[in-house]
């Protein structure tokens, strides 16, 4: 695995939200879910920048949906996590858990 293929922290958050949302993952629900889960304001431009990088890495695919009047007649773009993306998330989770384990400061909830 090259460094280019690794998941950045924001990319990991986005891909986790995509898994959570399933078939309804397009820009608006993704940003709302990210805001809800992180408690921070999210820039839609940053979400799309992360999605473009994930698509380049082959972790995500996209398809155009139906245009709606509340979007000014523009189509939605739905994103799906690929098998390779899921594998990468599992590997990242394993690495993070290994790093997490055995840190008394975090286990006692001091940090």
């Amino acid at each position: 695995m090259t460094k280019h293929d690794q998941l950045g922290s924001f990319e990991l958050m986005v891909i986790l939200v995509l898994i959570r949302l399933g078939d309804n993952a397009y820009g608006v629900p993704i940003s709302i879910e990210l805001e809800k889960r992180t408690g921070r304001d999210v820039a839609i431009g940053s979400v799309y920048a992360a999605l473009e990088r994930l698509e380049d890495k082959g972790f995500v695919t996209s398809e155009l949906g139906e245009p709606t009047p509340e979007r000014g007649g523009r189509a939605k773009k739905y994103f799906h996590v690929t098998a390779r993306g899921l594998k990468e998330v599992r590997e990242t989770q394993r690495s993070l858990v290994k790093l997490w384990n055995g840190l008394p400061e975090l286990e006692r909830g001091k940090a």
Binding site: Y26, G27, V28, S31, I44, G45, Y48, A49, L51, E52, P67, T68, E70, R71, G72, R74, A75, K76, K77
Partner: peptide, 17 residues
């Protein structure tokens, strides 16, 4: 510079409304 400019505008319009 994004290739998703039109989709971003659609999302922004939706949230604005």
């Amino acid at each position: 510079s994004s290739t998703n400019n039109e989709t971003i505008l659609g999302d922004l319009d939706e949230r604005y409304r």
